[in-house]
Design a protein around this nucleic acid. Sequence first.
RNA 1: UGGCCCAUGGUGUAACUGGCAACACGUUGGUUUUUGGUACCAAAGAGUCUAGGUUCGAGCCCUAGUGGGCCAACCA
Length: 674
Amino acid sequence: MSEETKSLNFIEHIIENDLKTEISQDKLRFRFPPEPNGYLHIGHTKAIGISFGLGERYNAPVNLRFDDTNPAKEEQEYVDAIKEDVSWLGYHWDKEVYSSDYFQQLFDWAVQLIKDGKAYVDSQSSEAMAEQKGTPTQPGIDGPFRNRTVEENLDLFNRMKAGEFNEGEHILRAKIDMQHVNMLMRDPIIYRILKKSHHRTGDTWCIYPMYDWTHGESDYLEQVSHSLCSLEFKPHRELYDWFLDQLVVEDQVRPKQREFARLNLSYTIMSKRKLLQLVEDGVVNGWDDPRMPTISGLRRRGYTPTAIRKFVETVGVAKRENVIDVSLLEFCIREDLNKTAPRVMAVLDPVKLVITNYPEDKDEWLEAENNQEDDSAGFRQVPFSRELYIERDDFKEQANSKYFRLTLGKEVRLKNAYIIKGESVVKDENGNITEIHVSYDPDTLSGSGTEASLRKVKGTLHWVSIKHAVKAVVREYDRLFMDESPDSHADKSFMDFINPESLKLITAFVEPSLTEAKVGERFQFQRLGYFNVDYDSTSENLIFNKTVGLRDSWAKEKPKTEPNPNQNQPKSNQPQRKAIDVIQQFGKKYTNLPDAKREKIKADILELAEKVSYDELEPLFGTAAKKVGTRIAVMLTLQVLLKNGLERNDAINEFIEKGLADGNALLVAEASEI
RNA sequence: UGGCCCAUGGUGUAACUGGCAACACGUUGGUUUUUGGUACCAAAGAGUCUAGGUUCGAGCCCUAGUGGGCCAACCA
């Protein structure tokens, strides 16, 4: 890795620093350690992106480790799904490993802990233990079994392993300090009895290690150098280190846990438990429902690995709580699809258009460019005839000059075809438009190069030939939740914010080339958005998912669309700030400026000072001593005011005195001017 | 009546050993355009939570406060 133009995030700074002081690059190793108890979601892509991204950056191996220490919640299905998702994102792990691979080693180490007098078997109820544990503000107390002999502990622990006891009868705890300020250090549990079959080890074990006892030791066994996790594990770090202290030997890499803020996305939830509830309650149709924030959901929705990786890269890494606006995710997928998706024509809300002067029995196959952003994409043929579908939205009987689409008496172009002119409408008895009659100019065919074809018209419409059109189902998705932060309301459940109209089924008409479309293929329906072929789709029954709409600056013109709620009013363009405020702002950076620029700022201040009243200035006499720049600006302003005839008073004199006595030469200079 | 972490435009992230607060999204205007898309140009928007301190100079260092988050599962 040579010089980077991009700045480093705080984790990269830590690693760069470690590289300088304590570890060589070939010892760098990372891991991504999901628990296989659910599907991966967009939040996980951040963790994945950090660890695998570091692996790519430093050419270091990254393990995919399944943290499977709780057989009650974990399943093979999730293991498979996680592997598929990580691969799909384009990351390559070094080893596929499981915490359960280390059960024997973990057990042996626990025995050692007992022998060292650092672990004991506790035989109380969980309630009793919770009682003794204290609270964050009150220390805990020692329990009655804390001082069992090594022999007794060993015997009990072995019998726990042998299956002699029921769940809950005994547990093994580390013997640390029940009075510790960190509650995790108050004799944490390291083994519990769980008479459950494990998805990998079956019934070999009936005692299972806890997270804290497993994680750092697994990192150590794999020689992970930097163990990155989210912020809520910060308090665990002390315990992580304590456990490591018990077994680390020299010349082995000692893993470091470091924590970053997890990703939150507006208008969605990120908790596996809650996501599971959406699946189980039938709110969505499975973990890969295109409305889900899961990786598999995004994949089915039409997102690309490129877009997701770009997104993760863009949101950055820090320790500050954050909520990323979905618009950034949408930007990332549009950016990718704009470059790669072939353009086609589809009409989602059809109205019939008849070209009255076009021969009834004529068909034409017109040339259409597949993707103007990609020269290699080539061309295809689309059929044209007398009767077409266009979007209902694209016609108005009359409209103002801001409407660029079809109206009576005005011309628009049909994409890849002719220029037409609105002539008349046919309505049913309720006044609904059933047909639009137009005439076309035969000399205006796209690409024909004739003078007429080069004529500028304001609008271009997409269309499909009714005779040739293919019916397709389009699934249009809206956000699943109507609240920006559905699971952060104390008084309401996230289920209260479910959007009942998050899925809309549309019968659309698409150009015939789409019968060839394969599952997963992505297209831009021109002027509408990006769509992909769902895996429920067949060539007889085409089904598309709407990935995301095109950016639509026209929609904002229309009054009925609600304003984006999380966008605030642009502040009035020239707020006309008060002179004193501007002076204060100038002052702030005054002392740090190069001479030339400082002179200019000084001149500006002196000019602005003409507009300042004494009442505005006086409060600033109390400016903190450290804000030298502001005090200089105030001094300059004062000079002007005095010159303009302001009477001196005690406050002014005192302020000048203090200026003269200051250590800053610039301030002293301006004070002496008076 | 605790401990730890965090605080920079609307959002997110930068600013290396203190030295003219930058980039992206979003917003607004314009140019181009056979997609009201894309591309391009431009603009507005923060003086860095507050109060003190150190310093010639603080977003960055120190102190105190305020606000937010995390910590009391035989979950991870």
